[in-house]
Simulated scan of single mutants.
Amino acid sequence: MIIHLPTGKKFHNRKEAKIYFGTAYYYKMEREKKDLKFTNTIQSATNEYEDTIKAPAKQGK
């Protein structure tokens, strides 16, 4: 869930937020890491989470 802090408006996913704010403005808020609060998610708005994912080890036979 995404919460827009100044207005308190809640969005269930990024798609809803992008439609409401417009894609360019939404990404601007995401980059600046202000006015948005992400809850109930393991992935942040940026690609930081992808950098911490480790590839599964291959099991040899």
Score class of each variant (00 low, 15 high):
26 Y>D: 05
35 D>K: 08
2 I>S: 02
48 E>A: 13
32 E>Y: 10
14 R>T: 11
51 D>A: 12
19 I>R: 08
11 F>G: 02
59 Q>K: 09
31 R>A: 12
39 T>M: 14
9 K>N: 12
32 E>D: 15
16 E>N: 04
9 K>I: 15
1 M>W: 04
13 N>V: 05
22 G>P: 01
38 F>D: 00
10 K>T: 13
38 F>M: 08
47 N>Q: 08
17 A>Y: 03
40 N>Q: 14
27 Y>V: 00
42 I>V: 06
13 N>R: 05
47 N>W: 01
9 K>C: 08
43 Q>F: 11
56 P>C: 04
30 E>T: 09
29 M>P: 00
5 L>K: 11
8 G>S: 10
59 Q>F: 08
13 N>P: 00
44 S>T: 12
47 N>K: 12
3 I>E: 07
19 I>C: 00
10 K>W: 03
49 Y>P: 03
8 G>R: 06
26 Y>R: 03
50 E>K: 12
18 K>I: 10
50 E>H: 04
5 L>A: 09
32 E>Q: 15
12 H>S: 11
39 T>H: 11
18 K>F: 08
42 I>P: 04
21 F>Y: 12
6 P>A: 05
42 I>M: 02
11 F>Q: 01
16 E>R: 01
3 I>Y: 01
49 Y>K: 13
41 T>S: 15
28 K>L: 13
35 D>G: 00
60 G>S: 07
17 A>R: 00
15 K>Q: 15
39 T>R: 13
18 K>D: 02
17 A>Q: 03
31 R>L: 10
46 T>W: 02
12 H>W: 05
24 A>M: 06
8 G>Q: 06
14 R>G: 06
